[in-house]
Simulated assay, not measured.
Amino acid sequence: MTTETIRIGTRGSRLALAQASEVRARLMAAHALPEEAFAIEVISTSGDRILDRPLSEAGGKGLFTKEIEEALLDGRIDLAVHSSKDMATAMPEGLAIAAYLPREDVRDVFIGRTVQRIADLPLGAHVGTASLRRQALLKRLRPDLRLSILRGNVQTRLAKLEAGEVDGTLLAFAGLKRMAMESVVGEFLDEETFPPAPGQGAICIQTRDGDERAAGLLSPVADPRTAVELAAERAFLARLDGSCRTPIAARAILEAELLRFHGMILTPDGARMHETRGEGLAERAAAIGDEAARTLLAEAGTGFFAGWSGADGWRAS
């Protein structure tokens, strides 16, 4: 194995650093390398700096990856570690997702300031979340709630909750678990009725396309099951042209060679929802996701997403 330092690029949040450290630990174990063989390079992204407005207004998913991808393209880093749900479906030319780590629990969780469950929130309670998908799903469960955008990393959001700015918030359990913060969880949300974002719970590693050194490093730590599940979910997202402007949920589960898929689209106010299910062989993962998206597009009609303006909210077509 090469003695050159392996440079891992990541955002600087506590969660992002935990994910990069997990990648490093797995690579150390797989190749019997010391920690000194790796350098974790923190790269500030637009998504980390823009906190005064929703991501849908600022530019969407690429805000959390653009600067890291630029560092990868120009050779400042060798590997880029991302949360898969932050990744746009179209890769910049010259880059590729080379591996996924084994997927963590995909469920969302509710964290309340004074109550443990969503059902226990008083009428008109204030819940903050940066996710349009979570807002839309929550509106379906509790139309009476007052919802607002809550930006910032996990620690920032929890601090705002503790300060009383909101009565509750929703987060991905995977991130909390990776930071050993499971104790803050109030309620786990059922993934059948509250399905996750495409890619939720999965760490992906991006490399330069054709980088054989990186491919050799990552091969022993790559999880094939997660790769199959994400192939379906990302194909679903790609066909729907999904971004932070559109509430989209998807969950693919691979059991043996059978892949089961559940996809959902909603209007941001939660008033309209369409969902579909499918299954098939693992080798057809991308096709299963794509077919599910086509089904929903046909069912919902071409104007379903056109009514969402991003900055102004939902305007019915």
Rank of each mutant, 00 (worst) to 15 (best):
T3A: 15
I8Q: 02
A20D: 04
E22A: 14
E22K: 12
V23P: 01
A25G: 10
R26C: 05
A29D: 12
E35L: 06
A37G: 05
F38S: 02
R49D: 12
I50Y: 05
I50T: 11
I50L: 12
G59D: 07
L63P: 03
E70W: 08
L72Q: 05
G75V: 06
A80F: 03
A88Y: 00
A88S: 15
T89W: 11
M91E: 13
A96H: 04
A96Q: 13
Y100T: 05
L101F: 10
R103D: 01
R107K: 11
R107F: 00
R107G: 09
F110P: 01
T114E: 14
D120T: 05
P122E: 10
P122K: 10
L123M: 11
Q135L: 07
L137D: 02
L138R: 01
K139Y: 07
R142M: 06
R142N: 08
D144G: 09
L145A: 10
R146C: 09
I149S: 13
L150K: 02
A159N: 14
K160E: 13
E165P: 00
L170A: 04
G175T: 07
G186E: 09
E187M: 09
L189A: 04
E192N: 15
E192H: 15
P196L: 06
A197R: 06
G199S: 10
Q200N: 12
T207H: 02
A214Y: 02
A215Y: 02
A215H: 12
V221W: 05
A222E: 07
R225A: 13
R225W: 07
A227W: 02
V228F: 04
V228P: 01
E233Y: 07
A238S: 15
A238N: 14
L240N: 06
D241A: 13
R245F: 01
P247M: 09
A252Q: 06
E257H: 12
L259E: 02
H262P: 00
T267R: 09
G270I: 03
H274P: 01
T276L: 06
R277S: 13
G278F: 03
A282W: 01
D290Q: 15
D290A: 15
A292W: 00
A298E: 14
E299R: 14
E299N: 11
F304P: 08
A306M: 14
G313L: 09
S317W: 14
